[in-house]
């Protein structure tokens, strides 16, 4: 059963243009010019009930606009969509009982009050009785490890703590579908991991479908089974995450630091040296062409290692590569 069905969805915004300076301002005042921006261009996809779907792409790709259309906040310019059987922009309030949303850059918790107050308010808004709300709060507090944070004013919480409370609040009414728009934005590694673990647990225990937008490949790897990559409002790739990793996340960046000054010879076939110094080196290689252990043994033979960082290429790079290789709408 599908929880989301999207067919040829389009959203065009009209944006006012203005040239620089006073002259431009006056001209815009008397003779305004508008540019049409196609934020979403003919998107079609579906999502199964209980599925964890990653919806990723660079800034301005149309991810957030799509989420806002799917929650009923924005009206599309054309096309159809059904979320849990509801047409979002026509049945927004009915749909709201069944979905949870988190817009990572916007707070939904009342800023000056402790999170517990917002939780209790949401209980009333979603028409839960007080006993049920309290039971649910106790469960979510344990799942998100926020027991000690609930009575602290939200403004006093760190971003990571606040985000855990935000996601927990969005799950209070047991939604069937969670729409997360950049839930890990601005978080440090530990906070990201906390959020991911809790979301994963909730998805498994309560069979909540998760549609996640992010431009962090880590979110995708940790949470999602399937991925849709969008760019310029169009789907450029759609496949299982395991396939994406196999095909595109094969290039690794390794940075090492040595205890003492070394003069190593780093010329290994298939390895690109990005930066080299007396105490370290940064290099990049394709794991399908150059075995990891070959690179690592070469590096460790050069001297005593004190630090090592292995990272994936930025998602933007992966998308650029996918975009280069694929035509819009390419699906595997």
């Amino acid at each position: 059963m599908s929880s989301i069905e999207v067919n040829n969805l389009q959203k065009t915004f009209q944006t006012k243009r203005k040239a620089a300076g006073m002259r431009g301002s006056l001209r815009a005042l008397f003779k305004p010019e508008y540019t049409s921006i196609e934020a979403v261009r003919g998107l079609s996809f579906h999502m199964e009930a209980g599925e964890l779907l990653g919806f990723i792409g660079p800034n301005g790709a149309g991810k957030s606009t799509t989420i806002k259309i799917l929650t009923g906040i924005l009206h599309p310019s054309s096309g159809d969509a059904k979320v849990l059987g509801f047409v979002p922009w026509k049945e927004r309030q009915k749909l709201a009982y069944h979905i949870g949303t988190v817009f990572g850059q916007r707070p939904q918790l009342w800023y000056h009050l402790p999170a517990i107050d917002t939780f209790m308010l949401f209980g009333k808004i979603y028409e839960l009785d007080d006993r049920e709300t309290k039971k649910r709060i106790a469960f979510l507090s344990e799942a998100f490890e926020i027991q000690d944070l609930l009575e602290t004013p939200v403004r006093k919480l760190s971003l990571g703590q606040r985000m855990r409370c935000e996601v927990a609040a969005s799950l209070l009414h047991r939604p069937k579908l969670l729409l997360l728009d950049e839930p890990s934005i601005g978080l440090d590694v530990v906070a990201k991991q906390h959020i991911r673990d809790a979301i994963k647990r909730m998805a498994q225990e309560e069979n909540v479908g998760v549609l996640l937008t992010s431009h962090d490949a880590g979110d995708l790897e940790a949470l999602c089974r399937r991925v849709i990559i969008v760019n310029h409002g169009q789907i450029v790739y759609e496949d299982k995450v395991s396939n994406l990793k196999r095909k595109f996340l094969t290039r690794k960046m390794v940075e090492v630091r040595y205890a003492e000054e070394v003069s190593p010879n780093f010329s290994i076939d298939g390895v690109e040296i990005l930066k080299v110094g007396s105490y370290g080196v940064k290099l990049r290689f394709d794991t399908t062409k150059t075995p990891v252990d070959q690179v690592m043994s070469h590096l460790s033979q050069a001297g005593e290692l004190v630090d090592i960082t292995v990272s994936d290429p930025p998602l933007e790079e992966v998308i650029a590569k996918i975009y280069q290789d694929a035509q819009p709408g390419m699906r595997t």
């Binding site: 806002k68 929650t71 009923g72 906040i73 927004r92 309030q93 009915k94 709201a96 009982y97 979905i99 949303t101 817009f103 850059q105 916007r106 707070p107 939904q108 808004i125 979603y126 028409e127």
Partner: peptide
């Protein structure tokens, strides 16, 4: 302007 309207609109109230 700051986008918070998204949270006001997606709750089950008028």
């Amino acid at each position: 302007k700051n986008g918070e309207v998204a949270y006001i609109l997606n709750k089950p109230y008028n």
